[in-house]
């Protein structure tokens, strides 16, 4: 008589603990929002909430170092004839120059004077006169920076801006910090650059949406574990003049905002800084060249034009398209 009751009690306990375990996983992560690098940054993690404040300090300190407009920053000093010994600036310059070479200048940190001429650095948008643009373009060229090691200085007239890579780098830095502190699961969203640290506490991948470049919803959702997802799109920052839209992504070879049919380019990978720079570079290359580049460099990408969606073969089976997609899907 005793045995069956014992079995019932045990099974009820099991069911209960399972239920509680599941609820435990549903617990909301600890989250904090910061403003740095001219954008909104959210850090959410499953772990010690004291880490959140340290993440904020890291981001603020990196912002002060890398800002191109703050007269006390390392980058400002470099752009005004000074030198820098800062480790972050060195690592970023090293990465930037390597990616400029890889993309043959489609990504170029020295495009800053041109971006400034269009007003994208301040928000005071304008169309620069041709001679002003020519003068700004003459200062562009990553090849002119000869730095290898030691203290950094820039050739006369050359100015840099890490805007196209800094958010990705910041994500890598915060991720490294959190991993060092023993964190196993967390999610960063640094102005639209998403960094997944590990998987969700229940072991399933994070579900990262890519914004629909024309509508309000999502274009697709990607399951992501321990990777960064970086998207470049023209909807982020642009202005309209006489019926023409000017987006904030400037082609370093022409000095003009790109208008090549791309609506958005997303790059997924472990190195967030690289994803950040490559999403801009692919956007500048335009659909045809970007597809070839992504293929030959085995990049994980999702790229959208007006009538076509390009997705790399490694993502094509796990991607969930959202909304009404009446576009051709091309697997690279």
């Amino acid at each position: 008589m005793r045995k069956p009751f014992f079995v019932i009690v045990i099974s009820v306990c099991l069911v209960l603990s399972l239920g509680l375990g599941l609820f435990g996983c549903k617990q909301a992560p600890k989250e904090k929002t910061f403003f740095a690098m001219n954008t909104l940054m959210t850090v959410s993690l499953y772990g010690d909430s004291a880490l959140l404040d340290e993440c904020g300090r890291l981001l603020a300190s990196l912002d002060r170092t890398l800002s191109a407009t703050d007269p006390t920053s390392e980058v400002y000093r470099l752009n005004h004839g000074g030198t820098s010994e800062d480790e972050h600036v060195k690592e970023l310059l090293d990465k930037s120059l390597a990616l400029s070479r890889l993309t043959e200048g489609a990504f170029d940190p020295t495009v800053y004077p041109v971006v400034r001429a269009w007003g994208f650095t301040t928000g005071d948008y304008r169309i620069p006169a041709q001679d002003e643009l020519t003068a700004a373009l003459s200062k562009v060229g990553y090849e002119r920076i000869a730095w290898k090691e030691g203290s950094i200085s820039l050739p006369q007239g050359v100015e840099i801006d890490f805007g196209g890579i800094a958010k990705g780098y910041a994500g890598d830095l915060v991720k490294r910090y959190l991993l060092d502190k023993g964190l196993t699961s967390g999610l960063l969203n640094l102005g639209g650059n998403v960094v997944a640290i590990g998987a969700k506490p229940d072991g399933t991948p994070y579900r990262i949406a890519v914004k629909d470049p024309v509508g309000e919803g999502y274009m697709c959702i990607l399951p992501v574990v321990d990777k960064s997802v970086v998207t470049s799109g023209l909807y982020e920052r642009y202005f309209e003049k006489d019926g023409v839209k000017y987006g904030h992504i400037v082609d370093p070879s022409t000095g003009y905002p790109v208008d090549n049919g791309f609506l958005s380019v997303t790059v997924v990978g472990e190195d967030g800084a690289k994803c950040d720079a490559l999403s801009t570079a692919l956007f500048v290359m335009g659909p045809q060249k970007a597809c070839e580049f992504a293929k030959s460099n085995a990049l994980s990408v999702v790229m959208a034009t007006e009538d076509c969606l390009y997705v790399s073969s490694d993502l094509s089976s796990s991607i969930a398209w959202k909304g009404e997609q009446n576009k051709r899907v091309v697997t690279l």
């Binding site: 959210t42 999610l187 969203n189 639209g192 650059n193 998403v194 997944a196 969700k200 994070y206 579900r207 990262i208 949406a209 890519v210 914004k211 999502y218 959702i221 997802v229 970086v230 998207t231 799109g233 909807y235 982020e236 997303t266």
Partner: peptide
């Protein structure tokens, strides 16, 4: 909603 974060 159903996404954990949005890349933009």
């Amino acid at each position: 909603d159903d996404a954990d974060s949005v890349s933009r």
